[in-house]
Design a protein around this nucleic acid. Sequence first.
DNA 1: GAGTGGTCTAGACCACTGC
DNA 2: CAGTGGTCTAGACCACTCG
Lengths: 242, 242
Amino acid sequence: MAQVSPTFSPLYRQIKDLIMQGLASGEWRPGEAIPSEAELAVRFNVSQGTVRKAIDEMAAENLVVRKQGKGTYVASHNDPRAFFRFLRVVPNEGGVSVPQSVPLECWRAKAGQEAARILDIAPGAPITIVRRVLKFNGKPVVLDEIYLPGEIFQGLSLEVLQEYQGSIYSLFETRFGVRMIRAEERIRAVAADRATAEQLAVAEGSPLLSVERVTYTYGDKPAEWRRGLYATAEHYYLNELN
Amino acid sequence: MAQVSPTFSPLYRQIKDLIMQGLASGEWRPGEAIPSEAELAVRFNVSQGTVRKAIDEMAAENLVVRKQGKGTYVASHNDPRAFFRFLRVVPNEGGVSVPQSVPLECWRAKAGQEAARILDIAPGAPITIVRRVLKFNGKPVVLDEIYLPGEIFQGLSLEVLQEYQGSIYSLFETRFGVRMIRAEERIRAVAADRATAEQLAVAEGSPLLSVERVTYTYGDKPAEWRRGLYATAEHYYLNELN
DNA sequence: GAGTGGTCTAGACCACTGC
DNA sequence: CAGTGGTCTAGACCACTCG
């Protein structure tokens, strides 16, 4: 019997890939509805059940949001419910509070070996670096340093960051067409250096969380590298394990 | 039009609950196969597709593992693949290595206010406390203090812990019939006190991760509360965000 | 070959949304 | 009411495992 192709994948997964292409190419943009299941079934010449299974997977991966009676929408970081998708900071007491992002600096540089490797760009390629503070109820809790591939984030500046209302990923999505879909965080404990201690209003040498994040967009392409330093006296990092 | 019952749930979810009861009651034990989809369909008098959807959800929640051509098995912490389900520590360099658990102490006490609240037992109820170190390649990396409801973990002792080959959750499952299915971790950065510094072979005052974990068994019943202190010089805590 | 999970289809009906 | 996603069914066939 002939061996099936090693790259075989079931029909619903091929359909999924086709829909993903539509997302990646911008055919359907964040916040917009994709065509109905019935319509996609006709377009791809498969049964609605197969389209449904494809979309099921995408919904499970937060690529898409279903709304009964309305349609299926491309997930967006503009959606307030997406705000805490990648932000796991919670105050010790008092419920969820939405932090305020305060941009400090934004400048351009050339990628070093490490940044180039992580962002999958050439060493020496332009990158944009952002420093900002996250404040909860006016108190600084997180100090972020964010490395971005300069080519993609051309027009990014301190002014743009200051003007924009909403999360950084919302900005990236709206202004630069880059939608973040997945991230990996590497967490360590470190001692605050003097400059950081000042920004976070803690004593020099205080223990801080160091949260290194690599964020990926469509096609598993890394599009952001950031390091956050978290003051965890009145907040903590919440992780749910399933 | 009459409003549907507020507790309405679709058929496949009711089937899921029935299967969950079977798991919780021990009708099918960890590592064993549950009946085939066809058999369950007959038993519950629904179509195989409905059973399938119920099991789909359970597989997504890691309650159950499907094996094509063989059957569907109750997930078990004995399975080596489950070892890192709740353990997110990774060495900076060199691939995955399986740590060794070194039990230090095990004693009984009465639950204080906090332990009682978290474990959902009466204040003053018996609890069992375990202290142990996790070593990677012989080096201590994690110091754990584990609080357990004493009633459930009657025969737990330092000897039992020392003898047992395998993870602690594997022990809980095998010897005490308690299967952990979900956990929440609250992570902070703290400074090492003298005793901890000694155990982890770091300097006093070194920054450590404090990882507080509440672990739940069937019915969302808390069955473990632990605090781990992680030395993160040569290891880090890895979290994947989706 | 028998038994299992995995895929795919076609069709019926339900629940929700918005006009 | 039309259009959408959500549920449920019945049946066919495929892929994998094991005796």
